[in-house]
Amino acid sequence: MARKIKLRIWRGSAKEGSLHDVEVDANEGEVVLDVIHRVQATKINDLAVRWNCKAGKCGSCSMEINGKPRLACMTQMANFEEGETITITPLRAFPVIKDLVTDVSFNYQKAMEVPAFEPPADLKPGQARMAQVDVDRSQEFRKCIECFLCQDTCHVIRDHEENKKKFAGPRFFIRLAELDMHPLDILRNRKKTAQEEHGLGMCNITKCCTEVCPEHIRITDNAIIPMKERVVDVKYDPVRWLGSKIRRREEIS
């Protein structure tokens, strides 16, 4: 059975914008993205919204719903109370292109800055072998759908535009961790550059990235903190540093 829903949708551009009240029907079992599509079809035909799979796997429909970074396609209308006004805005960490669509190119820039996987030079195609226990750890990070909700909620850049130059963000910390934990990656100084160039030290582990991740990747516990500990190994632990000079250890590279 359909029920009337009150929405406040942000409309505008990079220069100006405001919240607009809209009333629309919502059917049982629908998600926020369904309702936005109904608004588009019946009330505001030129409302801009980015979406694709409607299955929580493409990461396109990231937006803020009642102030929380969410995927619109994974947010059930049943979560909201009768008569509640639902406020929908674009991601507030990135510049607006139009209405609910933001420019997330910051993330693509940061992706390019992460040094790629570097296998041993003598490893021929088809020769690489990995045990399942080694695959499992980085497999969690491969679940990332690049919705950038973690980047959006991270206060380091959300609340401080000036930090964007020197901070890669949680999405790329899991990429760095994935590579650093890869048994066949031999790139040296990945830990040091994580700290010195990608801004790992800026993270104060307040775990908002983990809270908003729709794939439930334990970003802080399984990627950021392990990377912080690895950085301590090479930068802030004189005993480990000395050990690495005396005896080459496979894990300190």
Partner: peptide, 12 residues
């Protein structure tokens, strides 16, 4: 004037 109030971001 920084953070969520930076120019270019959704005006709120």
């Amino acid at each position: 004037t920084t953070g969520v109030f930076s120019s270019g971001r959704a005006e709120l």
